[in-house]
Design a binder for these strands. Structure first.
Lengths: 348, 348
DNA sequence: TTGAAAGCGCTAACAA
DNA sequence: TTGTTAGCGCTTTCAA
């Protein structure tokens, strides 16, 4: 690997001149620029980003923390972030919490050690004291995606209008005559998005003077496995819900699996909806009512806020709330099932 | 941010001693170890990985190149890789080619600049001359996942038995009476997995003395959009296929979308299969015949090979071929549609 | 067992 | 406009 010294020697100039040419310094004679570029070409020199980063105090790297990359929503976000950040010459250092709040905290500290220039954060649990502390004291700018962190006042926030969206979706179910609605959610209260969704759900119920038994709200880790178990619990209820709303995508997968195994028909046997809009939702037969949003816009907004902060263009943190759209589909179109779904013995 | 000097001063020792304590050097007095650890705790010191990396020549970072993180298969691989590598104290630097072969090449060079200690590679196009050159001359070990690169003889390879799997799946279709089979694939010949799949497909046909018209093989970028177009082209054929095999997951999504829009019923109107097994495949109604494999095993194998190479335990590159399993499902269970599917005017 | 010193490759400040 | 010098924070000789 050629170093800057090799290039300098080859061009017969000082190392600093090589830096100047490559970083686009204004005062460089065309002659010198010429010779340096030629030497760079000849030697195939590429700067060592570790060394440059150490010296400069910035690594041209952005840390991205996601709760679970398998969630297609988050995969799409990471994809869009990567493209956008790369366009600004930043690489993405990915940290995946894998559903474990302890890993959230580790991730922040690890990314700091890697001297990432900024953080984009979609943690599992934003309420952890250590996490709040770690983010609050972050020496680099932070953008929260669908999260808010108490005391972390310098962070910008990009989120979607989960509350309004979920309220609208719930109203839609109520209008279709459902009064017993099951609700699958990740751990309660651990994310802003989760709380807003829940608030929207409850608001719609309260508008109609409805109160659900607590057991209709199933909270667990947001994985297909737990989603499946939670669905089983709902279906086994002596008075099972006539509709189920799955919040996180992975729980939708588990729910569909359980319905499939029991032979309960989506749409006719039970109404079903999701609070995000992954491909499974619209490809399912019948298609599943869902809340959709522009994920590219979400990621671009987050990346732009971070880059603007890093470049010094933006001094104050901002909060951006993006719209969500209710997609009414066949899974909620049928009239309410006449009789309660019978608990099935074929479970699992 | 406390540096090693701060810790050394606080403990009244030399910086080198701090390093020794923290890296578990054998000859350290308990007294000194004690004092250093106390100072570390008190100052909240965390080593700067850029500086350590520069000095040591290794960044504790592994570069992972994926063609498209939105593909649930690749998302799952990245997830599993991250968990496994983190357990060995490596972080993942993610590079996403986004379906663009030019970005493959950039990714290799960028990751090299970041001084990643190793590379795990699932590029878009393994046949690009620049890419082959870049990988061949990689100063760090490379593991190819579902790829092979000519001249890159030091790289280990982890792949699945695509040829056998695809042949078996195709036989299954033939056994069900299908003789006109459409085949959706990404760009032809650009990956080992793609070539093996195609070889398996053709082998099964040849066994039966069948030859398909070229237009039944639809090759394009592996995205839902192109998958949808390719499906439309197949359905608009004067003699449309009675079965369609989608290779890449994103093309399956596009295919299902087109079928849905045209109201062609999967299973009865047309048989359908996929060469991987994403959640959509088994959740679709009717469920879709697919080839499944243990993705965790795949990722763990790749990570282990890389780590073993890095630690010096493994001197020679290895090739590991993992099995694939045919999941026969309802999408291919119905008898061959009696009449050819009529080209529809409702296309798009 | 511990410390002092050198240097990884780069860039920024200062001089010329 | 260009070169010289110093040093980012760490680890690794080498010496004590």
């Amino acid at each position: 690997m050629a170093t800057i010294k090799d290039v300098a020697a080859l061009a017969g100039v000082a190392p600093a001149s090589v830096t100047r040419v490559l970083s686009g310094h204004p005062n460089v004679s065309p002659r010198l620029r010429e010779r340096v570029l030629e030497a760079v070409r000849e030697s195939g020199y590429k700067p060592d980003l570790l060394a440059a980063g150490l010296r400069r105090g910035s690594s041209r790297t952005i840390g991205v923390i996601v709760s679970d990359i398998i969630n297609p929503l988050l995969a799409e976000v990471v994809d869009a972030l990567e493209v956008k950040l790369r366009a600004h010459d930043y690489s993405v250092l990915l940290a995946n919490s894998h559903g474990d709040p302890a890993r959230d905290v580790e991730a922040v500290s690890l990314l700091r050690q890697h001297r990432t220039d900024g953080l984009i954060v979609m943690v599992v649990d934003e309420t952890r004291a250590e996490l709040k502390e770690a983010l609050r004291t972050s020496p680099v700018p932070v953008v929260l995606l669908d999260r808010t962190v108490e005391g972390c006042d310098d962070a910008s926030v990009v989120t979607s209008d989960h509350r309004r969206g979920t309220r609208e979706l719930t109203r839609h179910l109520l209008d279709a005559g459902h009064e017993r609605i099951g609700y699958l959610t990740g751990p309660l209260g651990t994310t802003y998005a989760g709380r807003e969704r829940m608030a929207g759900f409850l608001a719609a119920l309260h508008e109609r003077g409805l109160e659900l038994p607590e057991r209709y709200i199933q909270s667990s880790r947001a994985t297909p496995e737990f989603g499946q178990r939670a669905t089983a619990a709902l279906l086994d209820d002596p008075e099972p819900p006539t509709a189920i709303v799955a919040g996180p995508n992975p729980m939708l997968v588990g729910m569909l699996r359980e319905l499939q195994e029991r032979g309960v028909m989506v749409g006719t046997g039970i109404a079903v909806a999701c609070l995000d809009d992954p491909p499974i939702a619209f490809l399912h037969n019948p298609a599943i009512t869902a809340l959709s949003r522009d994920i590219g816009e979400m990621a671009d907004t987050a990346a732009s806020l971070l880059v603007a902060t890093l470049s010094g263009e933006m001094r104050q943190p901002r909060t951006v709330v993006l719209p969500m759209h209710l997609r009414r589909r066949a899974s909620t179109a049928a009239p309410v099932p006449a009789a309660p779904v019978a608990p099935s013995a074929t479970s699992r």
